[in-house]
Amino acid sequence: MKPRILLTNDDGVSSGGLWAAYTALSEIADVTVVAPSTQQSAVGRSISIFEPIRLHKVVINGFDAYAVDGKPTDAVIIGLYALKLQPDLVVSGINIGENLSFESIMTSGTVGAALEAANQGTPAVAFSLEVSDQGMKFDDPRSAMIHGEEIGHVVADVCTRILDSGFPKGADVLNVNIPSTIRGGYEVTRLAHKLFHTGVEERFDPRGRPYYWINGPLIDDAEEGTDVHAVRQGRISLTPVTLDCTAPGAFDEIRKQFCP
């Protein structure tokens, strides 16, 4: 029997990236798509606890899928507990735009879905694709079709290795970032500190009242060994991520301050 994969994302159930992943993964597994019905980028691990969640069975590109009126984490929870899919692996992506650095993975709905799956006891991989034009992140995700067998091959290859050999011990999620132009192989990386030079742009509406856009250009590069550096060099970044956010390096100093 083929292994079972629950496929989700944060760009929405009709995203070209999601269906590129579906095409690649269908060669190696029985894949069920359970994804947000609309664009949900940058919602992190938000969960809908103050409103009901609607589930719709839909047909996209000729294939059955489930559209969830909620967040990526909601989609994972619905897939695991309402649909009772019992997947061997949860895959989130392919996200249109890279998810690199502490800064990005803390807000990413793509990584958030994978973290939620891991939190519920199912191993998970998040896939994101670097885009040469940052404006693509804000286009209709249905138009962001991912072309090229190389991208699908990476998704299928990573998942095949994990399904065959088991999930890497010591990691809860594997965060995979694929460069827009692949010029090298895999590199195991750590998270860089930042992905953007954060800024705020003030504008004024027709009545003269201010409003704000959070913006800022991408960081050109980061130190060697980081996910940002690997992708900028054209290599596929593999970053193991844990759910445990404890900072044991601070234990001694906190004990001195609070437990003399």
Rank of each mutant, 00 (worst) to 15 (best):
S37R: 00
A144N: 15
T181G: 05
P52M: 14
L6P: 15
P217W: 00
V154D: 03
S128C: 04
Y211E: 07
F167C: 09
R142Q: 15
A113Y: 04
D64A: 13
N61F: 14
D172P: 04
N61Y: 15
V59N: 04
L163S: 01
A118H: 04
A192F: 05
S41L: 14
S237F: 09
G208L: 08
G112Y: 00
L25N: 02
A124K: 00
S37L: 02
Y212C: 06
T160I: 09
S37M: 03
E224S: 10
L55R: 12
V31W: 01
K194I: 04
A126E: 02
T8M: 02
V34I: 08
F258H: 08
R255C: 10
G148Y: 08
D133Y: 11
V155E: 08
E223A: 12
D133R: 13
F167K: 01
S48R: 10
E149D: 14
P123Y: 06
I77F: 12
S14Q: 04
L174I: 15
R142S: 08
S128T: 10
N177F: 02
M1P: 13
M136D: 11
L7W: 09
S14L: 07
A230G: 06
E202M: 09
E253F: 03
P123N: 13
R209L: 15
V241M: 10
S37G: 10
L163V: 02
L6I: 03
M136W: 01
V58H: 03
G185P: 06
Y22T: 01
H153V: 08
N95Q: 11
L218N: 08
S15I: 00
I49L: 14
L55C: 06
G199E: 13
N95K: 13
M136C: 02
S128P: 04
P52A: 05
S46I: 07
T189I: 02
E116H: 11
A230W: 04
R54E: 07
A156V: 03
P72V: 05
R54L: 09
L174K: 09
A42M: 14
S143W: 07
